[in-house]
Amino acid sequence: MFQPATTGKYSEIIGKIFLALFVLSIFSTFIFWWSGLSNKNAPDEETEQKFAEIINENFRRGDIVFTENDWDLDFLKNLKNGVFPVFLDLKNATERSVAMMKSSDDRVFLLLKSEQSYEKYVKKLNLKVIKVFKAGKGEVLLAETLFKTVKRTLVFSRDIGKAKRVAFSDGEKSEDCRKVSETKWQCSDETWNYVGLTTASFNGQQKQAVWAHPKSGKTLEIVFDVPEKSGKLYFNSVFAESAYRSKNRAPVNVEISADERLLLKYASPFTSRATEKSIKLPENTEELTIKLTTADDRQRHFVFNGYLSDEL
């Protein structure tokens, strides 16, 4: 004869506890999954519609959008073309990271789930609020960051359209890339073969960057006029789209010259980490040239960003 599992004083009590828990779990499953509780925190349709309307009306190129709710993105369905970037990382954002994500003095939109979030983010991100829009149950804040960074006289991602020249050369002849927009230079019919604005992850942080895929046997040259009062160069590069994991182990060789005087020279390492360099510019530099080469261009999804600052 077998003893039932629940025989014995303690076993009986434990059995009853588990039975009670089981019944409770059935009720909690019913209540949570059948009553709409599982979907109670999503912004309503009106709020989402309003978010999109406000941004569509007030967005100008260079602004960036942050959304507090990073999992219900239905408002995206109503955004106009050209409204981006939209960052989903407001909870982790810091005063500095927001300032660094922007490429200039542009503005920041915060899409907040409720009025209660206002204080928290304005204080945390050190924002100067330009305007507050009511959006259903939520709010849209239009603001500027007060975080003081060095003055950036040239930002490669923002100013890629202002490059003096973008071209591929093979030592004998040079082929200029064609400027197709303020953010893009197309270098051939191959769609990947361009120099232009993108975003990429730099050591875990999304940043605007310049896509600059080199070609085997050619040198990609990007030349900028150096604005006055520029004193220091900051240059960061990384492989986008996990290209560092590629079987192709040919590095991208980076050479940066100021008025033909070599400032920086390195080969891109095969890691997911970004390479971050900074160096003083020689006095009265007029022209900055970035040269990129590779022996094998398969999966060389090379991107860079950085800027010239007024630091001396």
Binding site: D72, D74, L76, L79, G82, F87, G196, T199
Partner: peptide
């Protein structure tokens, strides 16, 4: 960890507006 791809797509395609979304309980 892949959030930035959303903006990569936006820069390349000129829009961050999706054509279709898959979601459960409003979570995409």
């Amino acid at each position: 960890q892949n959030e930035h791809v959303l903006n990569n797509i936006a820069y390349e395609f000129g829009t961050v507006r999706p054509l279709a979304v898959s979601s459960t309980d409003s979570v995409f």
